[in-house]
């Protein structure tokens, strides 16, 4: 091979490698920018449409006074560490949200986590919000959503909400905090706002599960199938699990299942709650 030819081949190789490098770096940068943009989009959404439910803040009247006070735990400095709950009259501006996107039908709030987000359901594609944000823009983190098998009024025996396990802690990543025993013990409640109701769910368990599609795999209208699911909620066959004892579940229970991916492997991490209070909001 002539020297000139060799030189040309080497120059071409350098150009190709540089192009691949730029392509890969560009892809990473654009992906990260998209994730950051989605994060700020959701922060703006909270501030605009649910300012009472801003992540990391607590309302003055937001201390949950539980009848048995078991929601209170003692911190190391001896002070009572009561996990605050949102006020019943928290105003989520569903009208404004629905003007932006009519698929928004509720809002999920879990105290002391990043989870204060709108919940959506698409009538066109069950997994549309897996990669679209609340404004229907393409976004890898997507949105918190349910599928059309579930009614939007949370009246099903089992309602499943999905969200990404994002590395930056957004969307449903903070569900994994329930894998920590002390967090699990001190955080008993999940709150769902609908346009006219506040639903309070008591967390029954948090556990790893396989990647089976829950609603497609079980017919919860059958009592024996539902009973098996309740048994699983109270006795999950997983080493990575926390269970609250003493929570009563029966055939009238309305379960809320929050589903996200495990940090590794194909499984899912589920946080299961049971409806304990259904209040009218002002």
């Amino acid at each position: 091979m002539s020297k000139e030819k060799k030189k040309t081949i080497l120059i071409i190789s350098i150009i190709v490698c540089a192009a691949i490098f730029l392509f890969a770096v560009g892809r990473l940068v654009i992906e990260q920018l998209g994730i950051n943009l989605t994060g700020s989009t959701y922060n703006d959404t909270i501030e605009s449409y649910a300012p009472d439910l801003t992540v990391g803040t607590t309302s003055e009247n937001g201390v949950y006074v539980d009848e048995d006070e078991t929601n209170a735990t003692s911190s190391s400095n001896g002070k009572s560490n009561v996990v605050p709950a949102p006020p019943v009259d928290s105003k989520v501006d569903f009208k404004g949200l629905r003007e932006q996107n009519p698929d928004v039908y509720s809002w999920i709030y879990i105290p002391d986590t990043n989870i204060s987000l709108p919940v959506l359901q698409s009538s066109e594609d069950d997994n549309y919000y897996l990669d679209h944000d609340v404004y229907k823009n393409y976004s890898f983190p997507g949105a918190i959503y349910s599928q059309s098998m579930n009614k939007k009024d949370y009246s099903d025996r089992v309602t499943v909400l999905y969200g990404h396990n994002m590395r930056n802690g957004s969307m449903f990543a903070n569900l994994h905090m329930f894998g920590d025993e002390s967090f699990f013990n001190s955080h008993r409640y999940i709150y769902i706002y609908t346009p006219d109701r506040l639903l309070t769910y008591e967390v029954v368990s948090a556990h790893a599960y396989d990647d089976k599609h829950i609603l497609n795999s079980y017919d919860f209208k059958k009592d024996d199938v539902f009973q098996k699911w309740l048994d699983l909620a109270q006795n999950p066959h997983s080493l990575y699990s926390n269970v609250r004892s003493g929570v009563k579940l029966d055939m009238n229970s309305k379960m809320l299942v929050l589903s996200t991916c495990l940090s590794s492997g194909d499984g899912r991490f589920l946080v299961q709650g049971v409806l304990i209070k259904d209040e009218k909001t002002k």
Partner: peptide, 8 residues
């Protein structure tokens, strides 16, 4: 028959 992939 698989749950939506919600990994990061």
């Amino acid at each position: 028959n698989k749950s939506p992939k919600t990994g990061s």
